[in-house]
Computed example of a mutant assay.
Amino acid sequence: MLPDLPLPPITVDLLPYEARLDERPLGQIDLVVIHCTELPDMAMARQFGERVHYASGTGNSGHYYIDRDGTVYQYVPLQRIAHHVRGYNARAIGIELVNIGRYPDWHDSRHQGMGEAYTEAQVAALIALLRKLQQDVPSLTQIAGHEDLDTTTTAASDDPSVQVTRKRDPGPLFPWPRVLDSVQLQRLLP
């Protein structure tokens, strides 16, 4: 049996448009997708989450966000489908970890490295949250990184003749072995 990790309190701070997101039964959820914000801080992640991108009046966001200090925020209820990964939203929970990633040059071919490590507080909070989600959503059996599921490329912003990977998160410094050893979820690698 895995040792218990205390889950930090979850600050529920729902996005202004959350009621416009499509509903789903919890039994439809079998996947959690790990992201990094690729933004400098939680405040900017909130600003990006509130931006409307769709005719429905909704935008792109995960369900949960974990700041560098391990603080956990919930922006979207699990019963709502958040827009966080192409083709998998209806069955997935999105968890975003605050991390600079490639910011501000996401698609510049000269700036594709992701050098910020995740903090111990973030990883511990993530593992505790994943364990809680497994208890609350028994159908949850799989986990993936955003980069595992969205492998499309796009023209580089600095040189349109060069293709770069659109999504690289959670990136090479995400501690997959530790997380997978700590939860009872199988990694989905399509």
Rank of each mutant, 00 (worst) to 15 (best):
V52F: 12
E96K: 03
E116F: 00
A90D: 15
H53T: 07
K132Q: 15
P25S: 10
S109P: 06
I93H: 00
I95E: 06
A128R: 01
Q47E: 14
A19W: 03
D105W: 06
Q74V: 06
E96N: 09
D136K: 12
M44N: 08
V123C: 08
Y75F: 13
T37C: 06
A128P: 03
I29Y: 01
R131V: 12
I34W: 10
G27Y: 07
N99Q: 10
T11N: 02
V85A: 11
A45F: 02
R46M: 15
D13G: 02
V76R: 01
E50Y: 04
R110E: 13
I10W: 00
A121E: 15
A55N: 12
I127K: 11
D22F: 11
Y75T: 08
D4Q: 10
Q122I: 05
V123Q: 02
L5T: 15
I100A: 01
S139E: 13
M114S: 02
D67G: 06
L133Q: 05
D67Q: 04
Q74H: 09
Y54W: 14
I81A: 05
A128K: 02
Y17P: 09
L130I: 12
L26W: 14
T141A: 08
L15M: 12
G49M: 11
A117T: 11
A45P: 02
G70S: 06
G57H: 13
Y65D: 03
L130M: 13
E38W: 10
G87N: 09
P9F: 02
P16H: 09
T37K: 03
Q79S: 11
E18R: 08
R131M: 08
I127W: 03
G94I: 08
R51A: 09
I34Q: 09
G27V: 07
D13V: 02
E38R: 04
P16V: 12
G70E: 06
G59C: 14
D67E: 10
D108G: 07
G113A: 13
I95P: 02
T141S: 09
R80K: 15
E38T: 03
H63S: 13
S56E: 15
L5P: 00
L14W: 12
A82G: 15
Q47S: 10
Y64C: 03
